[in-house]
Design a binder for these strands. Structure first.
Lengths: 206, 206
DNA sequence: ACTTAAATTTGGACATTGTCCAAATTTTAT
DNA sequence: ATAAAATTTGGACAATGTCCAAATTTAAGT
């Protein structure tokens, strides 16, 4: 493992445990048996380090979220499950989300792209799920608002969990918000869709 | 206006505009034609100042959220609308939400109370809305998850808006998330409930 | 093997932050 | 008018992220 990778890994670990804002460069350096300016050689500013981590999340998610015309509702929900797990691995980012947006302009512009492409990916998947008979909508604008709802849950569930559900294990937190996600979709399912949705929920208990 | 109130007001203004973390004590003092240590006389630490502001939001919301057995769905939605407006007035708090939770233990314990009492208030209102024939649920657990969904939207809509909807005016942002809230409730409305809900949505346009 | 250049690591400096305190000043009460 | 209390002030402190010149290690060419 290169020095740069060691820094990345230890930073992610400490940031996740204590919060990005509460891990100083000196503390990070101490954990690495390194001097501070050695870190700044690879990552000139703390923002650069955070940005690198955000790229890590982006890559991890890009491996999961795939465009697929033949997607099923079950596959869609399982995809979200994997995204949730990635969010746990990179939770420091999501917990400092708005703060990072305000502070770090590179992350902000980067994120805007990610956000809109995610929204489009969700929209596309919803369209496919309609076409494939898993979902049905009375009103066209309902689709748009379902996408908004899902975006909100996906982006902020871990923040909510940190505040309200910290007594639960990580696994149970994920379950809770996956159920919430499924329930949000449920009103728009067809018979076929609801069957898969219930199957997904049953699978969560096992 | 007392010195303490002047500090409070100016701090809220600057915090809202620039973010809590990006307004230093010296900058705040300069805007007040005051020395830093004069602020710390009234608010020994910045946390104390932030806590005072959080109390302001709490009081503002407590005036709105009332227990009412005869509540209608329209009244419930209008209550949420006022809460949303309060959130705009105190947006610095909600934007730094998770960050403040981690850092400021007084705010954290304070918030946990507020959060659970809010959840209970929403739950109580939903129960009344069921009893009064505006909502109906097939599954009992659906109630619990609707409450969770509403909590999530209420708490994080402004964070989402700051990132994704910053091009919209504040008024339009509020509209967007009120519609989202209404759509979240819609699947569980009775005929009577849906009528009021549509009336509320129509009122938003005017 | 020796020299040179590049890459890496180091210690110390800098400005900025929130916090704190003793002294000075203003206000209030007697 | 005087004493006490409340308020305001300037300056200090440790901690933070950032930066830079010098020292050290590594790699490459002869």
């Amino acid at each position: 493992m290169t020095t740069k990778e060691k820094i990345f890994t230890k930073a992610l670990e400490l940031f996740n445990n204590e919060g990005v804002e509460y891990v100083g460069m000196r503390e990070l350096a101490a954990h690495l048996n390194m001097r501070v300016s050695n870190i700044t050689y690879y990552y000139p500013t703390k923002d650069d380090l955070v940005f690198a981590i955000s790229q890590g999340l982006k890559e991890a998610n890009s491996k999961i979220v795939v465009e697929n015309d033949n997607i099923t509702l079950l596959a869609f929900l399982n995809m979200l499950k994997q995204v949730f797990h990635n969010h746990v691995k990179y939770r420091c980012l999501l917990l400092s989300f708005v703060h990072l947006m305000e502070q770090n302009k590179v992350i902000k512009s980067q994120y805007k792209k990610t956000a809109s492409s995610r929204n489009m990916a969700i929209s596309a998947n919803i369209s496919h799920l309609i076409k494939n008979g898993f979902l049905k909508f009375k009103d066209k604008s309902d689709v748009e608002y379902l996408v908004s709802s899902l975006s909100l849950i996906i982006r902020f569930w871990i923040s909510e969990a940190a505040v309200s559900q910290s007594r639960l294990s990580v696994e149970n937190q994920i379950h809770h918000y996956l159920i919430l996600t499924a329930k949000t979709i449920q009103p728009y399912t067809s018979k076929k869709g609801e069957k898969e949705l219930l199957h997904f929920l049953a699978g969560l208990q096992a």
